[in-house]
Amino acid sequence: MQILIIILQIAVLLAVVLLHVAYTTYFERKIIGHMQVRMGPMRVGWHGLLQPIADGIKSFFKEDIIPEQADKPLFLAAPVICLVAMLASLAVLPFAEGWALADINIGLLFIFAMSSLASYGIILAGWASNSKYTFLGGLRSMAQVISYEIPMGLSLVGVMMLSGSLNLTEIVTAQGTSIFSIYLFPQIIGFFVFFIAMLAETNRVPFDLPEAETELVSGYITEYSGMRYAMFFMAEYIGMMVMASIGTVCFLGGWNGPFAIPFFPPFWFILKVYGFLFLFIWIRATLPRYRYDQLMALGWKLLIPLALLNIFLTGLFKILVH
């Protein structure tokens, strides 16, 4: 019985998240369109509202092409690794008080592990396709993930120090219910570092070097088509949502808001995640891509020292207060 309930919860979460993925692509196209004084999708349904469904059906029925020289098992496994790792990290997210599928004590660590695993999918895809563009995309992804995992982990150390826990639910409760007690204010440096590292982790503009379409055709997904391509796409968008949720949980006070919403406790959580997603899209519509050496310089020379400084200041603050 317990297992059945958990399976049902998983199914509901999956359905909700995949629907969100579909409509995030729609809103991304709409918002970027309007920011570029265009309209975005308009023809499928009212104001293009059925566009993501049409896209989904199209990619589902498209031919699945495997290059002749590709490393077949790895080529087939790569998108699955990507998607599974991203979906697994959904399990530990606390959407509201007690609304986490798995309320484990190493929640933050688990999410780091899973987002690093997802980059294995990208690297393997780049390698297994046996094409120069995908290989370059995979290489870049590897370097980017190694450079940005470190500042990301370090930026959250401050949060861990303040809350004294790796459990995401406890991090939220440690921030209290007041809007002024969220960790955004004491951890403003940490948030800055986290935000930039988050953009880089999810391969979003301005750090979308692994799939830089202007230089690398489509980067690591060049050789993929049909449903496997869609799986990479879903993984990317779920990654965005997971990272937005981590930002919400660790810096913006999770599900706590100015006032409680009856019957739907995750309201504020979801609102904050939408805010993050809008920020992702807004940045994509505005900024050009970083050059490769600039990306590395930013990660190693700026973000890591800043994150270390943040840890030092947080520690000093804790000693002085107690």
Binding site: H34, M35, V37, R38, M39, W282, T286
Partner: peptide
Amino acid sequence: QGMALTLRKMFSPPVT
């Protein structure tokens, strides 16, 4: 400044 520009343009009528 760039972000402010894109946000402003989002609310201007599209030329399409």
